[in-house]
Structure formats: structure tokens, C-alpha cells
């Protein structure tokens, strides 16, 4: 049993009558010769670190070394004059929380990367709370996300330096969307559709961080990409399909990443990084 594409992943799940998470887990057992328990335990440990990083970030005592980032998760948490929709708000708070912990050189799970590490825990843990899901269910959701990301790693890239932010926050959002669909009871095809819908809408996203730090726009972008994942999951659960299939969206992302100039791929040589404010921040930090 193995998969090189999202299509194969979905077909395996459908053929065996299994959720995508279980297919991903079985393939991992086959490839690593580790036991189901060992692999499961390692993913459960990831869930634990995610939960800690969410809690740390939500408490709001973080400041990154540059001073640019920290305290926004708390701001969102304590403010009572917000747009209605508590669940969406919780997701955004969680995403900012983890991204702030990361910027503050704290401990996180890089999933798929550290710069995008807030997105998957934000969605998975908020859904867990809202739907009262067990840790086993949430852990399964992480396997689904990992399987989807694995295909992107094999066929394209997960590095901002090679593919721009579409390859980090874009893919994280797509992985979170797919995991959400499974957690909400959607079928394997819906998981793939949610993945495609989310990634498609973040194609072309540049990686142009101010002063080269994983802070601006990265931290807040985790909040946006997390809520974006929910939009894609909502559509997919309603039966809305991406006209472009998931694997072709990955190909498109890869092509766009290759065409993107190096100045927009984590080098801080263009875009937001070279705005007057961006440059002023860089100069201040270099002093």
C-alpha cells in the first residue's frame, strides 16, 4: 500500500472503506516497520505539544526578540466587541497563539513548517473543543493532514525559499481543510476537495517577510490561513468541488513557485520587506 498522489490516497481509502487518516497510518507502518502503537504515540505527542503551544500563546505573555510580535492572540481573546461567530474567533486566536510562540523561539510542532505551525493546531484543536472530539480523533486528523502534506512534499515543495508562502501557509491551510472535513465526518473525496479548494485560493502567495523574520506578515497570516481552511472545509462538506483536481493544483503550485523570483522567496528582497516601513524596521533591528 502506497500513495504518490492525492488521487491515489482517496482511491485507497475508498477501496478499503477506510478514512484517509487510517490509510496514511497503515502506509507509515509499512514503510517504517514501526508498530502502530509507536507511530500513534509519536503523533499523540505532537498533539500534546500543539496543545501546550496554543495554551502558552493564548496566555499572551510573549514578545519576539525583535519586539514586532506578541500579544495579539490575547487581544482577540479579551475583546468583546467583535464580529459574531465564536468558533471562527477561537480558530484565529489559536493560530495567532502558536505563531507567536514560534516567533518567540518557543517550542512548537513544525507542521508542515514552523512559519505555518499555527494553522493546523488552530483548526484541529478548536474543532476538537467545539465538537467534543477525543484525542484519538484529533490524532487521526493529524494523520490526514500529514498524508496530504506528504504528497506535496513528494511532488512539489514545502519550503518558502523554494516555493514562496503558498508552499507553507497555503499548504498548511489545505492540510487543515482536509483534516477538518474528516473530523466533521466528510468522505475521502471531500477531504481531497477541501484540500484543493484551500490551496487553489492561496496560489501565488509570496514569502516577503520584513527583515527576513518569521513575524511580519507570517504570524497574522497564520490566523487568515486557519480561517481560510474552514471556508474550504465548509464548501467541501456541502459537496462543492474544485474544478481543478487536487493533484493538478499541486502541480500548478509547483510551477508558480518555480516561476516566482528569488526576491519573493524568503530572501526579504522585495514586497513587504522593502516597503518604507519594512526597511525602517530592518534598519532599526540591525542597529
Amino acid at each position: 500500500m502506497d500513495y504518490a498522489t492525492i488521487k491515489e490516497l482517496i482511491e485507497l481509502a475508498e477501496k478499503e472503506g477506510l478514512p484517509i487518516s487510517e490509510v496514511v497510518l497503515r502506509v507509515e507502518i509499512g514503510e517504517t516497520e514501526q508498530s502502530r502503537e509507536e507511530i500513534w504515540q509519536a503523533m499523540l505527542e505532537n498533539l500534546g505539544v500543539m496543545r501546550e503551544s496554543v495554551a502558552t500563546g493564548r496566555a499572551g505573555q510573549i514578545k519576539s526578540p525583535s519586539g514586532l510580535v506578541g500579544g495579539d492572540a490575547l487581544k482577540l481573546r479579551v475583546n468583546n466587541t467583535l464580529i459574531p461567530g465564536n468558533f471562527y474567533r477561537e480558530v484565529i486566536i489559536n493560530a495567532l497563539a502558536v505563531a507567536e510562540v514560534n516567533a518567540g523561539m518557543g517550542k512548537i510542532v513544525a507542521g508542515p513548517t514552523a512559519g505555518s505551525s499555527g494553522i493546523i493546531p488552530a483548526v484541529v484543536l478548536a474543532l476538537g473543543e467545539h465538537l467534543q472530539l477525543s484525542d484519538a480523533q484529533l490524532t487521526a486528523g493529524l494523520f490526514t493532514a500529514a498524508g496530504l502534506g506528504n504528497v506535496v512534499a513528494k511532488r512539489a515543495t514545502l519550503a518558502g525559499a523554494a516555493g514562496g508562502c503558498q508552499a507553507e501557509c497555503g499548504v498548511a491551510s489545505a492540510m487543515a481543510a482536509g483534516a477538518s472535513v474528516e473530523l466533521c465526518g466528510g468522505n475521502p473525496n471531500m477531504v481531497g476537495q477541501a484540500f484543493a479548494l484551500a490551496l487553489k485560493n492561496l496560489l501565488g502567495l509570496a514569502c516577503d517577510p520584513v527583515a527576513g523574520l518569521v513575524e511580519v506578515p507570517c504570524v497574522k497570516r497564520n490566523g487568515f490561513a486557519a480561517s481560510h481552511a474552514l471556508t474550504a472545509a465548509q464548501m467541501a462538506l456541502a459537496g462543492i468541488e474544485s474544478i481543478i483536481p487536487p493533484d493538478e493544483v499541486i502541480e500548478a503550485m509547483h510551477q508558480i513557485g518555480c516561476l516566482m523570483p528569488a526576491s519573493l522567496k524568503e530572501t526579504a528582497l522585495a514586497g513587504l520587506a522593502v516597503t518604507p516601513t519594512g526597511l525602517a524596521i530592518k534598519e532599526r533591528l540591525n542597529q
Binding site: 507509515e28 507511530i39 509519536a42 503523533m43 505532537n46 512548537i108 508542515p112
Partner: peptide
């Protein structure tokens, strides 16, 4: 690539490429 290359590693931030790698 295994699943823990994707969901992981557990690491000190801020960048998987620039810090963990």
C-alpha cells in the same frame, strides 16, 4: 518522506528551514 517529516519535527522556532534544519 514519512508523516513526521510533515507533522514535525517538534522544534524551537521560528523557522523549520532556518532553525531546525
Amino acid at each position: 518522506m514519512g508523516v513526521f517529516d510533515i507533522m514535525g519535527p517538534i522544534m524551537i522556532g521560528p523557522s523549520s528551514s532556518h532553525t531546525a534544519g
